[in-house]
Design a protein around this nucleic acid. Structure first.
Lengths: 222, 222
DNA sequence: TGCATCGGATACGTTTTTGTATCCGACGGG
DNA sequence: CCCGTCGGATACAAAAACGTATCCGATGCA
């Protein structure tokens, strides 16, 4: 009964979600119409309204679907290389979080959308937290293996996400610039270095080098 | 003749552009209709089609208008504090480039749009370059005054822009988190420190500390 | 084999949005 | 003071998008 029939249902639902991803990426969320979305999926509007109630709903469902899948990929990729050095661990994480044209377009619009909707804001914040929770432990462990200690994991996590987002646009906006990728990695490494200290042991925190030290240095020219 | 009459014209044009900014920010570019845009501006569609040919055109014109204005603000703000230390110079620049909710929404969508349109991509790239050209000299000078030298200005410029973009979202997405702003500044300072070396003189570049050093350090655990 | 259910298609009327073609009033020149 | 031009409003027709109400076929169960 519900076994095969519901399988069919979730199949069409998925096809609709996939079509949504395509459509939103190519035409933009706002300019996408229910009709054209259904054309892509090979269904009629009837199917759509049977599975969803609005484009907004699909947007959210699709974004969650995709980013959940992506997070799983990252987890899987990191599980394998977790025993290497920080540079390699970071590169593995970067490789697993693809800098994808289409996905970036969609996420950019979703972000804009989320900035207008508190509920969506929370969804995005939670997702970012999940990404940090996945990536940080591996990175911290790899750093520790080289005798480096992270002082403020939360700050490092946020910094890495910010750098990822910021550099991803640059890379995508200038696909011809070959140096873009190198600069991106360079920045990542710098941040990793700046937010960790060489000491395996916890020395006096206030005196330790790191971001705070940099701030102090720059604040008071001497 | 054309003096007062064209003044009137450019006035309404500007009011339309301002209304576009509002509308795109609140409703999103895609969901904005010519009609509603005109309502905000207090005109009819007639006025719109007399000044523009499509929403896309307005989008571009409006974005260029706003970002040009913003760049002028930055220039003005930096002209005043250029004699201070790097920290203050950076903060001045950050203050002049406002992290504005509405503007961010619009820019996010514009970016997504630009990723689909080569011409717009070039517009955005040029704008980023202009921002870097405005901010970097001041920053480099301020750093030099404290005896610090920037090794790769282009790389630093890109890094700063990336960090700005990346942290701006975070700050906006979590307006309640008081630590967000502090973390943002911390990251900026770290980058500034990582991309400059303490030597006022140019030593052997390959041996100097900095991003490359960090990369090397992390790549080969020892 | 017949029946009930469920997923999706079809068909329909309605509302929005669009773009243009035409009109009106104001302002500048003679 | 009258005329021409220009900016914007009005009016109109066409098209697009919507959401629902209804129908049809397939699948699962008795």
């Amino acid at each position: 009964m519900t076994a095969a029939v519901s399988a069919r249902r979730s199949q069409t639902r998925q096809r609709l979600l996939d079509a949504a991803m395509e459509a939103f990426a190519e035409e933009g969320f706002g300019r996408t119409t229910v009709e054209r979305l259904c054309e892509r999926a090979g269904f009629t509007r009837g199917a759509f309204y049977s599975n969803f109630t609005s484009l907004d709903e699909v947007f959210l469902a699709m974004w969650e679907d995709r980013s959940t899948r992506m997070l799983a990929d990252v987890r899987a990729a990191l599980a394998e290389v977790s025993a290497e050095d920080p540079g390699q661990a970071l590169r593995a994480a970067l490789a697993a979080i693809p800098v994808d044209d289409a996905w970036y377009r969609v996420t950019a619009e979703f972000t804009a959308h989320a900035l207008r909707n508190p509920a969506l804001r929370r969804v995005m914040a939670a997702r970012e937290q999940a990404i940090q929770d996945t990536v940080l432990p591996v990175l911290v462990a790899a750093l520790a293996r080289t005798g480096r200690q992270v002082r403020d994991e939360a700050a490092l996590g946020r910094a890495l996400v910010a750098v990822h987002d910021g550099t991803a646009v640059q890379v995508l906006l200038e696909p011809d610039d070959p140096g873009a990728w190198a600069r991106r990695e360079e920045l990542f490494m710098s941040v990793l270095a700046a937010y960790s200290t060489p000491g395996g042991d916890t020395r006096d925190l206030d005196a330790a080098p790191g971001p705070d030290a940099a701030t102090d240095l720059l604040e008071e020219p001497r």
